[in-house]
């Protein structure tokens, strides 16, 4: 009964209500402002934040919507990035080939890992996704043909034959913006659809959904594959931004950071993940400017976010909105 009365609220929250458009308008203004006044470095910083936000968005679909906590999502980012790097190393720089290959590769990996991991629940799910990510991490480390742990320099960014030039930082930034916006819209629609309702229902009460005749695991697997593919897209962009791939992109610390962003932003609201990613990237940048011991500040900040800030940044905004 309680779940039923709660549902409409959380659906509204998931669609972002009036907050999400504001987030994207603010973001567009930030990119524009950085370009006009703050200088190229800040455009790049925002681009990086948008890419990270895309990965966090992917993870929020799993964590917030489906209640599946994956501690291995950096692996899919890594697969996307490596697909670009390895193809570029073999002289295939066309984005028309690189991007589809990268997305298919991360989707395939997500299908396999998801199918196996979804046999478990709860903490076991956390750990088994970690296990698969660690295996991929060690596999990347031993790819000595592609630099092993030294990583691989990408000498040419993905080439789209003059339609868009990723070498131009402004174009690249706006491309990331458009991709982030489209993925957000797509995922928000998905989460408001029957598909999303089944996932949320299964998160609250798996047995009930199963009794209602839904093949819960199949729905979850589809969510896992979508999430992995979006994370792979983030990897493609990250590889193009840094012009470099390395196994470090796949380490469990990175997966942990993605989770931290989702919680920081406020789980399940999708736009919260974007806010969380921005807060994370910008805070790291700000704090590291003050002191090399920035973790002394950042660690307690994370603790406080959990202890005090229930619902993360999105929850805070929602509360502010209610007061008004």
């Amino acid at each position: 009964m309680r779940a039923a009365t709660r549902a409409p609220v959380s659906v509204r929250k998931l669609e972002g209500g009036s907050v999400a458009p504001l987030v994207f308008v603010a973001l567009a203004l930030a990119v524009l402002g950085a370009d006009l006044w703050a200088g190229p470095y800040y455009v790049k910083l925002l681009t990086r934040a948008m890419i990270v936000a895309l990965a966090a968005l992917a993870l929020d679909l799993l964590v917030g919507l489906a209640g599946l906590v994956s501690l291995g999502h950096a692996a899919f980012v890594g697969i996307g990035a490596y697909a670009v790097g390895i193809l570029a190393e073999h002289g295939i720089t066309s984005g028309w080939i690189q991007w589809p290959v990268a997305l298919v590769a991360s989707a395939a990996a997500a299908a396999v890992i998801g199918a196996l991991s979804l046999r478990t629940r709860g903490v076991h799910f956390i750990m088994i996704t970690l296990a698969f990510a660690q295996m991929l991490y060690f596999a990347a480390n031993s790819l000595s043909r592609y630099g092993g742990d030294d990583g691989l320099t990408i000498w040419n960014r993905s080439d789209f034959g003059g339609i868009v030039s990723l070498a131009d930082r402004r174009t690249f930034a706006w491309l990331c913006f458009v991709l982030l916006l489209s993925v957000y819209v797509a995922l928000a629609r998905l989460s408001a659809s029957r598909f999303g309702r089944v996932l949320r229902g299964a998160k609250d009460n798996e047995r009930r959904m199963a009794a209602l005749g839904f093949a819960v695991t199949r729905f979850r697997l589809v969510a896992f594959v979508i999430s992995g593919t979006v994370a792979g897209l983030a990897g493609v962009l990250l590889a193009n931004l840094t012009e470099f791939v390395a196994p470090a992109y796949m380490s469990w610390h990175r997966s942990g950071e993605l989770l931290a962003m989702v919680v920081l932003g406020g789980m399940g609201s999708l736009y919260g993940a974007i806010l969380g990613a921005f807060a994370f990237v910008l805070l790291e940048e700000l704090l590291s400017r003050f002191t090399t011991h920035w973790a002394l500040l950042f660690g307690p900040f994370l603790v406080l976010v959990v202890l005090v800030g229930r619902g993360g940044i999105a929850g805070l905004l929602a509360r502010l909105g209610r007061i008004r």
Binding site: K44, L45, L238, L241, T242, F244, A248, Y249
Partner: peptide, 16 residues
Amino acid sequence: LKPDVARQEVDKLLEK
């Protein structure tokens, strides 16, 4: 010791 952080930091050094 993170390659992408290094890239970001070096962009800051060069461009900012």
